[in-house]
Every structure is written in structure tokens, then in C-alpha cells.
């Protein structure tokens, strides 16, 4: 499966367009990690726990989008866009969407 965020794939020709596919996840970290992040908020710096959390959920969202594209019989997804929104405190939603296509 080719995934890009450009409108076309360099060196390949798009033959069929299957439509928009998307994947999303909402995740929260367990309380212990949240407390650690709270402490880190005093000292500043990177919140590794949150970086990991968001990376994991982004991978999962991409996986869901890929599954959807596969069901449609596509072999590539172009023009992928990410968006993040916080649903409630401590949880965030990752949404990823793109266009499923068949390339030759």
C-alpha cells in the first residue's frame, strides 16, 4: 500500500479513484502517566508519555484507514491529511483521511 500526502504518486499513474477513506482513534493515558505529565508541566520539556500516546494512536488510525482502502480494492492512498482534536481533558482524537486510488 502506497501512502503519500501529495496529490499524485511520483512515477505512477492513477487509474481508478475509490473515494475518501478515513480512520480515527480516541485515546487516553492511564492516570499514573497523567500525574507524571503533571509533574513535568512544572519543569517543562518534552512529555514523552504523550508523544508516545499520540504516535501509537496515529499508527492505529493509519492502520484503520489502510484497512478501509484495502476493502475498497485500492492499492494506494493519496492526499493524506491529519487532524488532532482534544475531546475531553487527557484524551485526544486523531483523525486521518485521504483518497483511496488504484495506481499502475
Amino acid at each position: 500500500m502506497f501512502i503519500t500526502n501529495t496529490e499524485e504518486i511520483a512515477g505512477k499513474k492513477i487509474s481508478v479513484c475509490h473515494g475518501v477513506v478515513s480512520g480515527s482513534t480516541v485515546r487516553a493515558k492511564h492516570a499514573g502517566r497523567d500525574i507524571m505529565a503533571g509533574l513535568k508541566n512544572i519543569m517543562g520539556g518534552e512529555l514523552t508519555a504523550y508523544t508516545e500516546l499520540l504516535t501509537e494512536s496515529r499508527d492505529q488510525a493509519i492502520q484503520r484507514m489502510e484497512d478501509q482502502a484495502q476493502q475498497m480494492g485500492a492499492n494506494a492512498i493519496v492526499n493524506v491529511r491529519f487532524s488532532t482534536s482534544s475531546v475531553t481533558a487527557g484524551a485526544s482524537e486523531i483523525y486521518v483521511y485521504g483518497t483511496a486510488v488504484t495506481v499502475e
Partner: peptide, 18 residues
């Protein structure tokens, strides 16, 4: 010739200090 093109990403969460 382009042999492969794929999506890559990097992310980071940084917090302010008190």
C-alpha cells in the same frame, strides 16, 4: 526514476514550565 514514495511523520509534545 522514483522507486518509492511514502508517508513519513514526526511528532512531539512539549510542555511549558511553571
Amino acid at each position: 526514476t522514483v522507486t518509492e514514495s511514502r508517508l513519513v511523520y514526526g511528532s512531539v509534545v512539549i510542555s511549558v514550565d511553571y
